[in-house]
């Protein structure tokens, strides 16, 4: 970097970023706890749970399928820069509004994948269930949900990155004086680019960890799927 004379404002040297990380662990941890542990993860879980419930409701009723999917699509298409300020107004500056943004962002991709997954069992397998006199719920639990798992995990993986983006960006529109989004926006203003990069590093690590955790659970749940057999 020094050889190319890149100014530290454009790109701080890696060792400078590492030094900042080492020197600001308490701040970085507080930001991480606020944004990831309180905003992104609870929002992700609530959004996934809601998508799961709605997917079952949609499955039971073709009327809902025609009604709810377009509404879900509409909400998912709302730009986050419009949505986040509104949700901050509704739920306050603290993590609740960030979790709400995340819920809205992860809900639709999980829903769409799960609805598709519930259609993924083969006709023959459903016929077999019918010849055994299986009820709707038995067929759902023993056949259709397991068959939907590879789809569900696709949705969850896409949603995990969206959750991170949502939780960080939502802090741009109002937050307490900590949080990863708050840190990035204020440090940019102060030209504290080493801190911005340190926060980005934490975000990258957190995103990879979340994605990796979902992949691990996926391997455990869908070990039977051709894509997971090694």
């Amino acid at each position: 970097m020094r050889g190319l004379s890149v100014p530290p404002v454009i790109l701080p040297a890696p060792f400078a970023i590492a030094a900042t990380i080492a020197g600001s662990l308490p701040t970085l941890w507080q930001d991480f706890a606020q944004t990831i542990l309180k905003g992104a993860i609870p929002g992700f879980l609530i959004g996934a749970g809601a998508a799961f419930g709605v997917a079952i409701a949609i499955d039971r009723s073709p009327f809902l399928q025609r009604g709810l999917l377009p509404i879900g699509n509409f909400v998912a298409a709302l730009p986050i820069v419009g949505l986040a300020p509104i949700l901050v107004m509704w739920f306050g500056f603290d993590w609740q509004s960030k979790a709400a943004v995340v819920v809205v962002m992860v809900f639709f991709p999980i829903l769409v994948n799960l609805v598709a997954g519930l259609q993924a069992s083969e006709r023959m397998q459903r016929d077999l269930m019918a010849t055994w006199g299986a009820s709707y719920w038995q067929t759902l639990v023993k056949l259709r949900l397991p068959a939907a798992m590879p789809f569900l995990f696709n949705g969850l993986k896409i949603a995990s990155t969206l959750a991170l983006i949502g939780a960080i960006v939502a802090e741009f529109f109002g937050s307490p004086i900590y949080g990863m989004g708050f840190r990035i926006s204020t440090e940019v203003g102060r030209l504290g680019l080493d801190m911005v990069w340190a926060t980005i590093a934490v975000a990258a690590l957190a995103g990879s960890a979340l994605y990796g955790m979902i992949s691990l659970i996926e391997r455990w749940v869908t070990f039977w799927h051709p894509s997971q057999r090694h």
Partner: peptide, 11 residues
């Protein structure tokens, strides 16, 4: 009922 394909659940 036995179908043309075994139709066993892979999981």
């Amino acid at each position: 009922y036995v179908f043309q394909a075994a139709g066993l659940y892979p999981w």
